[in-house]
Design a protein around this nucleic acid. Structure first.
Lengths: 222, 222
DNA sequence: AGAAAAATACCCTAATCAGGGTATTGTATC
DNA sequence: GATACAATACCCTGATTAGGGTATTTTTCT
């Protein structure tokens, strides 16, 4: 009976975890932490994304702990590839730096959660359990993510100094129209369009259509 | 002694809350809930954003509960204006619908958190306390937000058909570099760059740099 | 080893753009 | 009624781009 119970624990209710982390000490510490928990099973510990791919061919874990700053293929790149091939794996990013930009990019790449490397044992285990129950990040990180989204979607000053006509023309530039087409669309001379565009460049401090468009799209998104 | 303790509670540690919600029943229910908690003080309950602005001229609450679907000025619009004038107020959005797009837009407008209208009493109180301690949303909503970000930033099919070199060149186009500059940067002939760009246009089904850039930026942001 | 994909390089021409001007008209705002 | 700004229109020139080719080398995958 006790055997069947034991078997149950390790096959049915066990969370299998794989870790990818280049720093040996950190890696081994986490492996020890994981194996110290009854219903968690560490099925692999690798020092690079490349090695992890080999490991994934054998074992597909429930949760993958991924260092964000790996040598060779970066953790973010790795997430993208792993999620493509094994979309069901929940990926939890590990990092020493709490770099907002990296949090954001990891999430875009497909990471489900995020935890600081210096997290305590309990926090690590709780994050792993949390990710499986829809709680993908610590409250603090959630707050930072909100701020980041807000920044990324707030138009900048520069765009606000444009006159209504200039904004309209910039909008059409973004759609990919030529000066001639814009003139036709707005019933004005292409030469006038040209003048407006020159003024737009001056206000946005750019010297090419390309730069103007990417600035416009990046700064108001949506 | 007990008096000074009481005073402490209601002036130093009290969380002042204002609510803006057009549905009378819901509004009064929440007011009752709030006033049922010792260290929470409801300083105003309004049925429209316009009324709330008048209220804000008198009392500035710590936390503002804002219905997302108000008649007149929408909750999202209201958040934008309120945050502009009173940036320290923490705003918690209330809604019956769990509309991903609205969550996202509220956050962009400046909301710090989000709670469903049918939340239980305890959940409401916990969300209010949570927002003040950096926990801006329920785990479930955090998860949905992640998915939403991912969707919004996932490149489309077309961008994925580009070769690595083509992607790199597109990236430099987005930065506003000319063909010549790109050639210099990548140590290849500008003629080669030209060839790559032609291939990029073909794959993206566009016929101008402008269209390519706006497609690139819109489809992967960043 | 051989096929396929990617990256490289070049030629050509018409079209478009960038940036430097100047100038007129209407509409606010003070 | 003066000043400021937005919108309109034009001239000019050199630089850049778009789109049509062809062709070789390198990488990658089988």
């Amino acid at each position: 009976m006790s055997i069947s119970l034991e078997k149950n624990r390790s096959t049915v209710n066990t969370i299998s975890v794989m870790i990818v982390e280049d720093d040996k000490r950190t890696r081994e510490m986490h492996v020890a932490t994981l194996n110290g928990v009854e219903d968690v099973d560490c099925v692999g510990a690798y020092e690079s994304a490349e090695d992890a791919f080999k490991g994934l061919a054998k074992d597909i874990p429930t949760v993958l702990l991924m260092d964000i700053g790996l040598p060779g293929m970066s953790g973010i790149e790795a997430v993208r590839k792993i999620k493509e091939e094994y979309p069901t794996i929940e990926i939890l990013m590990l990092t020493v730096y709490d770099d907002d930009e990296k949090i954001f990019n990891s999430i875009c790449a497909g990471a489900s959660g995020y935890i600081l490397k210096n997290a305590k044992k309990d926090e690590l285990i709780e994050s792993i359990r949390g990710i499986l129950h829809g709680a993908p990040m610590s409250p603090l990180i959630a707050r930072r993510l909100l701020n980041l989204i807000r920044e990324k979607t707030t138009p900048q000053e520069e765009l606000l100094t444009l006159s209504p006509r200039e904004r309209k023309i910039l909008e059409l530039l973004v759609e990919g129209l030529s000066e001639k087409k814009i003139g036709e669309k707005l019933f004005i001379s292409p030469l006038t369009v040209h003048t407006h565009i020159k003024n737009i460049y001056a206000k946005l401090h750019v010297h090419s259509r390309a730069a103007a468009i990417s600035k416009a799209v990046k700064n108001k998104l949506l």
